[in-house]
Amino acid sequence: MDPRKQRSRDRLYAAALELAAEHPIADLTVTQLAGAAGVHRSTFYEHADSPQALVEAALTAELDVLREELLKDRADAATAVAKVTEAVLRHILIHVDLYRRELADGAGGLHAMLSRHFRGTTETLLERGRIDLDVTVEGMPPARVADAAARFLADGTVGIIDGWLRHPSARVEDFLRVYAALLPSWWPHSPAA
Rank of each mutant, 00 (worst) to 15 (best):
D2P: 02
K5D: 07
R9V: 01
L12D: 06
A14D: 11
E18A: 10
A20F: 10
H23I: 04
P24T: 08
Q32F: 01
G35Q: 14
A37P: 05
Y45L: 05
Y45S: 02
Q52N: 03
L54D: 01
L59P: 05
L59R: 11
L59A: 09
T60F: 11
T60G: 02
L63K: 06
V65C: 00
L70K: 05
K72D: 15
K72P: 01
R74Y: 00
R74P: 00
A77N: 08
A77V: 01
L89E: 13
R100H: 11
A104E: 08
A104S: 12
G109A: 01
A112H: 13
M113H: 12
M113V: 05
R116S: 05
R116W: 02
L126T: 07
L126D: 03
E138I: 11
M140K: 08
P141D: 14
A150S: 11
R151E: 15
R151H: 13
R151D: 09
R151M: 10
L153H: 14
G156V: 14
T157F: 11
V158L: 13
I161L: 13
I161M: 14
P168D: 15
P168N: 15
E173N: 04
D174W: 07
F175H: 13
A181W: 08
L182A: 15
S185W: 10
H189W: 14
P191A: 03
